[in-house]
Design a protein around this nucleic acid. Sequence first.
RNA 1: GGCCGGGUGGCCGAGUGGCUUAGGCAAGGGCCUGCAAAGCCCUGUACGCGGGUUCGAUUCCCGCCCCGGCCUCCA
Length: 469
Amino acid sequence: MELRLYDTRTRAVRPVEPIRPGAIGVYVCGPTVQAAPHVGHLRSAVALDVLHRWLIASGNAVTFVRNVTDVDDKIIHDAAHNGEPWWALSARITRAFDDAYDAVQVLRPTIDPRVTGHLPQILALTEAIIERGHAYVSGGDVYLSVRTVEGYGALSNQSLDALQTSEKAVPHGQSGQKRDPLDFALWKSAKPGEPSWPSPWGLGRPGWHIECSAMAVEYLGEEFDIHAGGLDLVFPHHENEIAQSACAGHAFARHWLHHGLVTAAGGEKMSKSLGNSITVADALVTTRPQVLRYGLGAAHYRSSMQWSPEVAEEAEAAYSRIETFVRNASEAVGDTPVEESLSKASWDEFAAALDDDLGVPQALATIHSGVRAGNALLAARELPTLAATLSVVRRMLTVLALDPMSQWPSAGGGELTAVVDALVMLAIEARGQARDRKDYGQADALRDRLGEAGIVLEDTPDGVRWRLS
RNA sequence: GGCCGGGUGGCCGAGUGGCUUAGGCAAGGGCCUGCAAAGCCCUGUACGCGGGUUCGAUUCCCGCCCCGGCCUCCA
C-alpha cells in the first residue's frame, strides 16, 4: 500500500498501514436525513468515493461503511411540523440522498447502517462505558464524563480549559442534569410524543455521537483503518466518538480524514441552517451529472470550494474537452491493438498523484496532458500510439468515475438514435453535394439549419461528424 | 477570546528553497478549414504586507492584515 493520507489527529500526511494487509475498513459519517441533499453533501460523497474507488483500484478488499442518522432532534421537529411520522420523513430523505449519490455514480457503500437499526449495539456500548466509570445516569439521561477521559481534545487540539472558558461553550438545551458543562449525552430520555426505545434507564433515544462509535465497531471492529467526514465534524462529533470509544476500551480509528466544505457565492459555508444551500436536484437542472461530479471532485478534497454557475460552466468546458477527445479518438482508433507499455508513464504519474493524499488536481492534470497529447496524435494519425493514449486516459477516468464511454453513456434510445442519424446524414449529404459544386451559400445554410436544431457538424479527414451541441 | 486552515498570474486551481516556475477556463497571435467546428502550436503576468534566515524564498522563521471553518445542529 503506497497510499498516504493527511491525518487530522497528527496533522501530517501519513502512510496508510492497514491493520489487515490487503483489506481496509473505512467509516464515513453520512448525513442526518432531515432535508434534501445539497451540493455540499454531494461533494463529500464524491471526494470519499474517490478514496473508495482508489482503494479498490489499488487492490484492496474494502469495507466501506457510511451511516445514516435517521433519528434526531431536527427530524422529529420537522416531521411534527409537517404532520408526518418522523420515520416517513427520514425514509423519504434517505431515498433523496441515495438518488443524489446514484446520479453522480457514487459507489454504494458496503453497508449504510441506520441508527434505529442498531439500538442493541448502542445500549451495550453505553452500558460498557458506565461500567467502566466514564458515564453516569442522571434523570433518565446518560452522560459521558469528559473529565474522566484522558487526552480529550487531542483530535481538535482543544484544551479542556479553553473549551470551558470559551464564550460559546455554554450548556444549552439539556435539562441541566450534567455534572459538567462539557459532558455530553450518550442517551436522552424521551419527552412525551417523541420516538423512544426501552433502555435500562427508561424510555429514550441515543445521543448524537454514540451511534457512530457503536456502528463502526459493529462492522469494522474495535480498531479500524480510516474514519472520514466533513471538517465541521471534527469537534465535537469526532472528538466525542474518540472519547466514547476509548472509554469502552476500543482503539477505534487509526486515521482521521476530513474533507473541506463547499461555500456558497458569498464565500460562506453552504448549510441548511444558513439557508444558502443549492440542492442537488436544483444543480442537476442546469448541470449534467457527470459535470457535477467533475466539478465537485476537481478540487483537492481538503480545500474548501465554491459552487456557483460559473464554476459549473468551467467544469462543463473542461469535461467536454475530455469527452470530445475520448469520442474522437475512439472512432479513429477502432480495433487498433493497444500497446500498454506506451502508457505506463502516464499511469504511474496518475497513481503517484492519488497516492499522495488523493491529489486529484494533479491526477486531472495528467489526464488533461494525455488528452492534449492524444489530440495531437489523432491529428497526425498515429493510431497505435493514440490507442495506447486513449486506453490510459480512459483507465484514469474510470478510477474517478468520469469515463464518458463506460460510465456515462450518452442518453437517448438506440432505435431513435439510428433514425436521427439517418436523417442528419441526409442533410449532411445534401450539404456535401453543395460543397462539391462550391455552392457554399447553400452548404452553410444547411449547416445553420442543423445548428438551429442543436446539431453541430465537424468536418474531419474521415468525413463529416455530427453531435448534439 | 481559543483552536484549525487559507491568501498564487483576468478567473478557478496545483506546487516547489534555485531546475523546462502543473492543469482547466478566459485573452491575444499563428496553423488547419472554402468558411466554420473540433484540434494543435506560441504568448503574457503570479505567489497578501513588512521583516529575518540564506549565495538565493512564492516556498523556511517572526510579526501584521484579510478570508473561511470549529468552539451550538451541520458533509
